[in-house]
Amino acid sequence: MDSGAIRRRSAAVLAVLIASVLLALAAPGTAQAAASSCPGRKVRTLPFSTGTVHVYKSGGNVCAITFQKNPGTKRTISVSVQARGHHAVRKARSHTRSSVPVKVYAGNRPVRVTGSVGSGSYRSGWMLL
C-alpha cells in the first residue's frame, strides 16, 4: 500500500469515529430532555387514556409533568400537585407534547397529583412518596 492509500483509509476511519462520537453525544441529550425538566428520581408513572403523568421526588420537593400519549396534535395539557394542607399548584398550556412541570415542597406530607390531555384525565388519591 502506498502512503496515499494509507492516508485515505485513516481519514475514512477518523470520519467514522467522529460521526460515532457526535451521535453518542447527541442521543442522550434528546432522550433526557423531558426528564431534565423535573429534578430528582422518578417515583411514579400514572397512565390514563390520553397521556401519562410522571412524578419525581428530590428531598422534600415533588415535581410532576404530563405527557401526551400521541404527540403531534396541539391539545390542552395540564398538571397539578397538591401537598396535603396546602393549595394545589396547577399549570396548563396548549402544546403538542407535554405540560409545563409543576414543583412544590411537600416535605413528608402526602400529595395528590392530577393531569389531563384533551378530554382524558387522571386524579390520584393521597400518596406518600
Rank of each mutant, 00 (worst) to 15 (best):
P71Q: 02
C63I: 03
V100H: 08
N70G: 01
R93W: 08
G59K: 01
P71D: 03
K91I: 01
F67S: 14
G72R: 05
H95L: 08
K74G: 09
K91A: 09
R90Q: 12
H95S: 14
H95D: 15
G60F: 06
K91V: 06
A64K: 04
S80C: 09
S78R: 11
V55Q: 02
P101L: 05
V55A: 02
A88S: 14
K69C: 03
V55L: 02
N61S: 08
H86N: 14
I65D: 07
R90T: 15
T73V: 14
T52M: 05
H95V: 08
V79F: 09
K69L: 09
Q82G: 04
A92V: 07
S94I: 08
G72N: 10
T76A: 13
S58Q: 13
S58A: 13
G60L: 10
A83I: 03
S80L: 03
R84T: 02
R75I: 04
F67I: 13
K74I: 12
I77H: 00
I77D: 01
P71H: 05
S99L: 06
G59S: 04
H95P: 03
T52C: 01
R84D: 02
G85R: 10
A83L: 02
R90D: 05
Y56W: 10
V100S: 13
H54F: 11
V100R: 12
V89E: 00
R93A: 11
S78H: 00
S78E: 08
R93D: 13
V81R: 03
G59V: 05
Q82F: 03
H54K: 11
H54G: 06
P101G: 02
T96A: 14
T76H: 12
A64M: 02
I65C: 10
N70R: 13
G72E: 08
Q82C: 09
Q68A: 15
H86E: 14
P71N: 07
C63A: 11
S80Y: 06
Q68G: 07
F67T: 15
V55I: 01
V53H: 11
K57T: 12
T66L: 07
V62R: 04
R75T: 01
Y56K: 06
A64G: 05
K91D: 09
V89R: 12
V100T: 15
G85M: 09
I77P: 05
N70H: 11
S94D: 10
R84G: 04
R75C: 01
T52D: 08
K91F: 03
V62D: 03
K74H: 12
